[in-house]
Write a protein that binds this DNA or RNA. Structure first.
Lengths: 196, 196
DNA sequence: TTATATAATGAACGAGTGTTCCATTAAAAA
DNA sequence: TTTTTAATGGAACACTCGTTCATTATATAA
């Protein structure tokens, strides 16, 4: 019948994700993307429709990949709480170098996008971040049921707390990426404020 | 001799700051700025030189204003630690509504800008954030000397910790701006991890 | 081999970008 | 009142933006 696309769709999205993750939505031009993924505008627009939609697919891809890392961490460890700790360590420390940014792409997007100019993409980013937090809450609920965490704790509140710590740490890492310092703060997440 | 500028320089920078703060560096165009501050390109470029320099002056203005708020908090309270707590409450809670963003403009800039494309502005933002952290360390040192904080604590480490909490909270507030939740986390900064 | 269908190309579009330039305006100095 | 000097207004510049589309290339079906 006809020709079939010769490029690998996932590979293209992966490259787009890396560019958007590093340079942000507004900082990335379609010309940048064309060069990075080595496709001409015609092909990109036939496949993805628009810059906005390519961004949407990219941030979803990023969220999926991050979700897979979390699942791997849970599988590799003996308990939900240990899995969560491993995940945080991976996220914060392994992203210090070699990645487009040490910050979370979802958080960068929420920081950059506005309701006035990019409501749809902003809402998508907020949704993806909420999904991560819900997953944290599930894990913590399991940990409470297993007695790893005291049962008078509120899983949803702890999930918010974990989210805040990760966001704070990964952003802070952009200014001070000293591994010992970062590591210390990661460990302190579960053992109490350094003030006490 | 000659004519004198009829606009108020600080007022112009204030308006530019609000625009950059809300929409970010890349999201703000010179046309946006021209409209917001009601000046024609000739006047803007004669006064500020470039978009980059106007951004630099804006972020410096923002940092100065924030520094003044901190000083006010220290003056209004009975101790350094109480002053710091008041400042954090002000920053996180009073910025929830009515401001261009609930996030810190400096943090937004550090998140958005890259070494590859905007090294000078990024470095300036990093410097301004480091200044804030140094100020925190001074306050905490005083608090230690006054016996408000145990003397075995490291002021610099606690200053980093405070920085991370503020960054995390203000970013998180963009997704969940429930005042009770935010207030709870602000209070917890100084009383220990919710895990314990 | 030919016909068909679709993927890929890349020039081009109108709008928007940061910035420049200079005629005009107007206030202070002479 | 005249001269001087700098601020102002706004058209215009070269370039980049996201996007479109007519054309060309090519894999498959007939």
């Amino acid at each position: 019948m006809s020709k079939v696309a010769k490029f690998d769709r996932e590979e293209v999205i992966q490259k787009a994700t890396n560019l958007y993750w590093g340079k942000g939505y507004h900082g990335t031009s379609m010309r940048n993307l064309q060069t990075a993924i080595d496709l001409r505008p015609g092909s990109i627009y036939a496949t993805f429709g628009s810059k906005d939609n390519l961004f949407k697919e990219s941030i979803q891809y990023y969220a999926n990949k991050t979700g897979e890392v979390l699942e791997t961490c849970l599988d590799e460890t003996s308990s939900p709480l240990e899995g969560l700790k491993l995940f945080i360590r991976k996220l914060v420390i392994e992203n210090l170098e070699g990645k487009p940014s040490c910050m979370c792409m979802i958080v960068k997007s929420i920081s950059e996008l506005t309701d006035a100019d990019n409501k749809e993409l902003l809402d998508e980013a907020k949704l993806l971040l909420a999904n991560v937090e819900n997953k944290f809450a599930e894990i913590i609920t399991e940990a409470i049921e297993l007695g790893e965490i005291n049962s008078d704790k509120d899983a949803k509140e702890l999930a918010s707390y974990v989210q805040i710590q990760i966001i704070g740490l990964r952003t802070y890492a952009r200014v001070n990426s000293n591994i010992e310092t970062i590591n210390k703060f990661v460990n302190e997440i579960f053992i109490g404020s350094p003030f006490h």
